[in-house]
Simulated assay, not measured.
Amino acid sequence: VLNLACFNINTLNIKQSKLIGSEPENAGYLNDTDQFDDGYEDIKQLEGEVVEFAYRVQKGRVETDQSERIEQILEAIRNATYAAKEVKDIRHDLSYLRQSDNLFIYNTYQQIIAQVEAFYSGVSNLFNHRNEVVLLEMYTELKRNTDEHKQVVTQAIYSDSQEHKLTEQDLSTMLNTVGEVSLSQTLLLRAMQSYLFSEASSRNLASAV
């Protein structure tokens, strides 16, 4: 939800699931920097509380499968927090692209936003399924689409930089934005992998994709 606010995407635009729900939960973050920063600090605070609780639990008598599941959840939380940080760090870049008078830059920004919206709809939809075979297919497609989008947009930026008279700042900002968005999505996918799949399936999935 917090990540979507960085892209000015309302949660109502995302496919509904138990993850997103049906209310525009990020509406308050969209144009309020202070509230967004508070939201990110809340994420880090919750991460710390969960980690502390998990370690206290593991000090007791915990079955092996339970301990493995706790580690999976902790990994999911770490990656989800990192994913939020990657997006938080490019808020100024996104604003730069959004406000550009250069049509190529603005169109590229719109392309990024469309991909982000489709990605988060896909992530949200993962929570609507429980069959691991279906989840694996959906997860793999999301990962493939994320990688392909980065390659296509990056290539277009390099290829068209001279034609569209991109400055060094334009080029740097665009490439950094595409890279960070892709990294954030990869981290979020890793979080979903740890949370949604069994440890054995998660290991096989990591080696496959």
Rank of each mutant, 00 (worst) to 15 (best):
residue 1 V to P: 05
residue 3 N to I: 03
residue 7 F to Y: 03
residue 7 F to R: 06
residue 8 N to I: 01
residue 9 I to Q: 01
residue 11 T to C: 15
residue 17 S to V: 03
residue 19 L to I: 05
residue 20 I to Y: 02
residue 21 G to L: 04
residue 24 P to C: 09
residue 28 G to E: 06
residue 30 L to T: 08
residue 31 N to C: 05
residue 43 I to H: 10
residue 43 I to A: 13
residue 45 Q to I: 08
residue 46 L to Q: 12
residue 51 V to Q: 05
residue 55 Y to I: 07
residue 57 V to A: 08
residue 58 Q to F: 07
residue 59 K to P: 02
residue 59 K to R: 12
residue 59 K to F: 10
residue 61 R to N: 14
residue 62 V to H: 02
residue 62 V to E: 06
residue 64 T to P: 01
residue 64 T to S: 06
residue 65 D to S: 15
residue 65 D to A: 12
residue 65 D to Q: 14
residue 68 E to S: 14
residue 70 I to D: 13
residue 71 E to D: 09
residue 83 A to G: 15
residue 86 E to H: 12
residue 88 K to T: 05
residue 93 D to Y: 10
residue 98 R to W: 10
residue 99 Q to W: 10
residue 100 S to T: 09
residue 100 S to F: 03
residue 103 L to W: 06
residue 106 Y to K: 15
residue 106 Y to A: 02
residue 109 Y to L: 07
residue 109 Y to P: 04
residue 110 Q to W: 09
residue 112 I to K: 00
residue 114 A to Q: 13
residue 114 A to N: 14
residue 116 V to R: 01
residue 117 E to G: 03
residue 124 S to F: 04
residue 125 N to H: 08
residue 128 N to T: 13
residue 131 N to S: 06
residue 137 E to H: 15
residue 138 M to E: 09
residue 138 M to Y: 02
residue 138 M to C: 01
residue 139 Y to V: 04
residue 142 L to N: 07
residue 143 K to A: 13
residue 145 N to Q: 15
residue 145 N to R: 13
residue 145 N to A: 11
residue 147 D to Y: 00
residue 155 Q to R: 09
residue 156 A to T: 11
residue 156 A to M: 14
residue 157 I to N: 00
residue 157 I to D: 00
residue 160 D to T: 10
residue 161 S to I: 06
residue 161 S to A: 08
residue 163 E to A: 12
residue 164 H to D: 08
residue 165 K to L: 14
residue 166 L to H: 06
residue 167 T to C: 08
residue 172 S to W: 07
residue 173 T to Y: 05
residue 174 M to P: 00
residue 181 V to W: 11
residue 181 V to G: 07
residue 184 S to C: 04
residue 188 L to V: 01
residue 188 L to W: 10
residue 195 Y to D: 00
residue 198 S to H: 07
residue 199 E to T: 15
residue 201 S to R: 05
residue 203 R to D: 11
residue 203 R to Q: 08
residue 208 A to Q: 12
residue 209 V to T: 12
